[in-house]
């Protein structure tokens, strides 16, 4: 998908002739900024590894300094002076509110008083935001084995909601999952509630091309925002199920200050930005 990546990165300059040179950015930088914008000051955030950690860190530096970030390992409210590269990184234990363990961490995920938003990734996602991070192929004789749930299924089950990071592609946005690891809206409508869940469900999917959300009634995925320079047709071609693109707007690109913080302060070694 090198073509749309380039057009997304260069689109702003072409779209605004006469303006000051718009910053050039990569899709991954756009993902981190787009996801970070879902974070509000004061939110309680459950962060996984990878881009999730980047989005949480950058939001805390930019517009949500009072957001509370915690990790399933038990790191609660660390200052994150250096970017952790795993949820068990000693950097999630430094200058934190407190250091605990897994049982305590999940009691914050599930806590009925807290509005906890989780950031998750997966190998496959379906139109209702259910996710697979376990196997490709037959479960008992897998073609490809992945890490497994970790805390993803728990966050999908227990948190107030979750936001997903995915690379866009037909292998990842599939009609049917090979294994359902993390519950989204299950079969849509009110099926999640009938399965016994009290709350939660996917809020948005942030990809290298766009931001997808879920219809309030059917809970089917639709295109909410496409990054500049990326066409709805291209997004549909990279999605393995039909997508409603009629509601799409163009996402605000990152500004120079957002990019400076992301590159110079949050991930100077480009551990996650690549």
């Amino acid at each position: 998908m090198s073509k749309p990546q380039k057009s997304a990165a260069g689109g702003a300059a072409a779209a605004a002739p006469g303006a000051a040179a718009a910053p050039v950015y990569t899709p991954r930088e756009m993902m981190a900024i787009a996801a970070g914008r879902f974070i509000k000051d004061g939110d309680v955030l459950f962060a996984g590894t990878g881009v999730a950690m980047l989005a949480a860190t950058v939001a805390k530096r930019i517009h949500a300094p009072q957001a509370h970030i915690f990790f399933e390992t038990g790191g609660i409210g660390p200052r994150l002076e250096e970017l952790p590269m795993a949820v068990a990184d000693p950097r999630v234990m430094a200058f934190s509110n407190l250091n605990a363990g897994l049982v305590e961490a999940f009691s914050y995920v599930a806590n009925r008083r807290l509005h906890t938003i989780a950031f998750l990734g997966a190998a496959q996602i379906d139109r209702f935001g259910n996710m697979n991070s376990t196997v490709i192929g037959d479960y008992l004789h897998p073609k490809v084995r992945f890490s497994g749930s970790g805390g993803a299924c728990d966050a999908g089950s227990l948190a107030s909601g979750f936001i997903v990071f995915m690379q866009h592609g037909v292998q990842k946005f599939v009609e049917k999952l090979d294994y359902l690891t993390t519950p989204g809206w299950l079969t849509g409508g009110d099926s999640r509630q009938h399965a016994g869940y009290r709350r939660g469900g996917p809020i948005a999917v942030v990809t290298n091309l766009c931001v997808l959300k879920f219809d309030e009634v059917t809970h089917e995925m639709y295109l909410a925002e496409r990054y500049e320079g990326v066409t709805p047709e291209h997004i549909q071609e990279n999605t393995g199920f039909p997508l409603d693109v009629s509601r799409a707007t163009v996402a605000e690109p990152p500004d120079a200050e957002e990019l400076r913080i992301l590159r110079d302060e949050v991930d100077p070694q480009r551990l996650i930005l690549g």
């Binding site: 299924c153 089950s157 016994g196 869940y197």
Partner: peptide, 10 residues
């Protein structure tokens, strides 16, 4: 309350 309706349980 984790995993209802998922293959982790099924």
């Amino acid at each position: 309350k984790s995993g209802l309706g998922t293959d982790v349980v099924e």
